[in-house]
Computed example of a mutant assay.
Amino acid sequence: MDNLLTDRQFWVNYWESKTGLSVNIPANYLFHQQLAEIINGQHVKTAIELGGFPGYYAVFLKKYFKLDVTLLDYFVHQPVTNSLLSANHLKESDIHIVETDLFNYTPETQFDLVLSCGLIEHFNDTADIINRHIAFVKPGGTLFITLPNFKALNGWFQRSFDRENYDKHNISCMDPELLASICKEAGLDVIQSRYFGHFSIWLENEKQKPAGVRAFKKTVWLAGKLFTRIFPFNSRQLSPYIILEARKA
């Protein structure tokens, strides 16, 4: 089976459909607390974001932690990234950019922190893509991976109202125990592998969906937020994300 669930044209179309990409990234950006704990606790100086165009986390790490940051992706439209940097009062030279196919690239250097957010679920061979991440981690460094949890209510929503997008994801990899076992097999110490977030649902290009779908999504979103505000907990059924943190010996 082909390992890729997407191709370059998919990502060209995906990013060309987006507007408002050049945003001012806040200090409380998603996963900010987890990243801060890693950076401060492990004295991180260098980091690479894999598959992260236009580079939101690379910008976040440079802007708030002053790390030496690299962005690697096989689709990088430089003007978009430059506009994002400008919106966050950074220079083009503040982030190193490597535009390459991760599957035909041997890391030239290793990093204190290797992260990807929403990458590994687009490949069929989960162990292979995680091990490609691990190749970038220096001894003593940290691997931090996040991905959506489409085994939760959010997944039902995607499958029901955006099946094309849902089918671009490897649902079987959305399993904290599986992710932890792959890292352990590779010799890493797993710090955490768990469901994250109390509740959320979303749709790609929501404004293009029928009004009835948008209204239903808003109703479910509000009900879920109210419920988990009263009963806050992480779970397979409701949490929108999975996070994996592991350390190389």
Rank of each mutant, 00 (worst) to 15 (best):
M1Q: 14
M1C: 12
L5A: 07
W11I: 11
V12I: 15
W15K: 09
W15Y: 12
E16F: 05
E16A: 14
E16G: 06
K18W: 13
S22V: 09
A27R: 06
Y29S: 04
Y29V: 08
L30G: 03
H32R: 10
Q34I: 13
Q34S: 14
I38G: 00
A47Y: 07
G51L: 06
Y57A: 00
F60I: 10
K62N: 06
L67P: 03
V69F: 05
T70I: 03
V76F: 07
V76D: 02
V76L: 06
Q78H: 14
P79K: 10
V80K: 11
V80A: 08
V80S: 10
S83D: 13
L85V: 14
A87M: 14
L90N: 05
K91V: 11
D94G: 09
I97F: 04
L102K: 08
T106W: 05
P107F: 05
E108G: 11
E108M: 10
F111H: 12
L115S: 05
L115G: 01
S116Q: 08
C117P: 00
G118Q: 07
E121G: 04
H122K: 15
A127P: 07
D128K: 14
N131L: 07
R132D: 05
I134E: 08
F136V: 01
V137T: 12
P139E: 06
T146R: 00
L147E: 04
P148L: 02
P148H: 14
N149T: 13
N149P: 04
L153K: 11
G155Y: 01
F157I: 10
F157A: 02
R159F: 13
R159I: 00
R163Q: 04
H169T: 10
E177M: 07
L179V: 09
A180E: 10
I182H: 01
G187T: 14
G187S: 13
L188S: 03
D189A: 10
V190A: 08
F199A: 02
I201K: 04
I201L: 14
W202S: 09
E204M: 01
E204K: 05
N205E: 09
N205K: 13
K207Y: 15
Q208Y: 09
A215M: 14
K217S: 04
A223R: 12
A223Y: 07
T228P: 00
R229H: 11
I230H: 08
I230E: 11
F231A: 10
R236L: 10
Y241P: 00
A246N: 11
